[in-house]
Write a protein that binds this DNA or RNA. Structure first.
Lengths: 205, 205
DNA sequence: TAGATTGTTAATCGATTAACAATC
DNA sequence: TAGATTGTTAATCGATTAACAATC
């Protein structure tokens, strides 16, 4: 069984490796990658070894090859079909950001607010939220991103699940009593800051 | 030693408890809280027991009391002084969101772009990024939020650290070779989606 | 070949679970 | 008191580290 933390670190390695490649780096050692990514060399080697032997003993890892290997482990060597629900200020910002990532294919954005329908954020058109169900029947969607107030999350998650979406990232915490046939993650900025504040206070003492 | 995961869960419990309180709930059982927050009853009791005995044996936990207890554990019973660096589309959205949380006191927002100086996002004024160092000398700041491209993160973190900020939340991954006398957290939306996509694909098989 | 670093194993560390005694 | 649920302990599970044999 591969630890979840390993998968998360692969994303971090990928970013460090890409930056290395841009700088013209050809080989990288587990010690270097570890230092840059804030882990240990042991862990870098262990993480990679779950998926195969990507390194050259005595030499290190070929940067370009390792980037490819990690991309195909994560499955991002082909486009990921995304939609966004909730085009408020946060939703709009996320929508802009997601369009900058080459392997994200944003199929549409949905909102309740009539005034937003038909508007574009970058290349993506805002559609009425009640089109969502129909849209999912006609377009296979991998992941959904939700940026609406907490009260609405449950219902939207239901619709996405029935529409075949297998993963959801929500920017509002929701109570999720219902076990679901999908992967559900929450990003709560206030919670991150609370955690940070607690740790920062411990640091002082 | 208290697990980091425990602290993160406290934030989640807090949100579930507040929602319960709004519904008029007076007592809550560890089993109920666990179900709503996606953990186990054992873990709820263990997490709370690190900080004391907040429950009533045979009865459960008084919702209002537990909310207070968790707030003072996290230290959010007094305002947290925050600043934001980088007032792009994501920064603006975060700035709006943070202003909605009662215990966050946003002292200022900073940006490189001259055109943004003097503008307001809600109640917060955008100041020139080169004012930051001086600003920190005159205003004690608990936490900083960074929403700028990755290249600039290192320098801003330096400035914040020297200015006495003890915790930073960055929305761009940065390579952090330098060990720091502060707590540094990264939120990377693309990385979250990559993780979600990997897990969603495993789910199918 | 000699030198260096990977991949892997065993040991350690930490977090979660399960079970139950304490007690409201 | 009897019933119920907390707080806590010991057992389990999982992830990280350290050390080294394999090998480029």
């Amino acid at each position: 069984m591969i630890p979840e933390a390993t998968i998360r670190r692969l994303s971090v390695y990928l970013r460090c490796l890409r930056r290395g490649l841009r700088r013209g780096e050809e080989l990288v050692l587990s010690t270097q990658l570890a230092r840059r990514c804030g882990t240990s060399a042991s862990l870098v080697r262990k993480d990679l070894s779950y998926f195969g032997g990507f390194g050259i003993k005595g030499k290190g890892y070929r940067v370009a090859d390792l980037i490819h290997a990690i991309e195909s482990i994560l499955g991002i060597n082909k486009p990921i079909a995304l939609i966004l629900v909730g085009v408020g200020s946060l939703g709009r910002a996320i929508l802009r950001y997601l369009q900058e990532v080459p392997y994200f294919n944003i199929l549409g954005a949905f909102d309740n607010d009539e005034k937003k329908w038909g508007r574009r954020v970058g290349r993506v058109e805002v559609l009425p939220a009640h089109f969502l169900r129909r849209f999912l029947e006609e377009n296979p969607v991998d992941l959904g991103v939700i940026a609406i107030p907490p009260e609405g999350v449950e219902e939207v998650v239901d619709t996405l699940e029935r529409g075949g979406v297998r993963g959801v990232l929500s920017f509002a915490l929701a109570e999720f009593e219902v076990p679901r046939n999908m992967v559900l993650e929450f990003v709560d900025i206030a919670a991150e800051l609370e955690f940070l504040y607690y740790k920062a206070n411990k640091l002082k003492t």
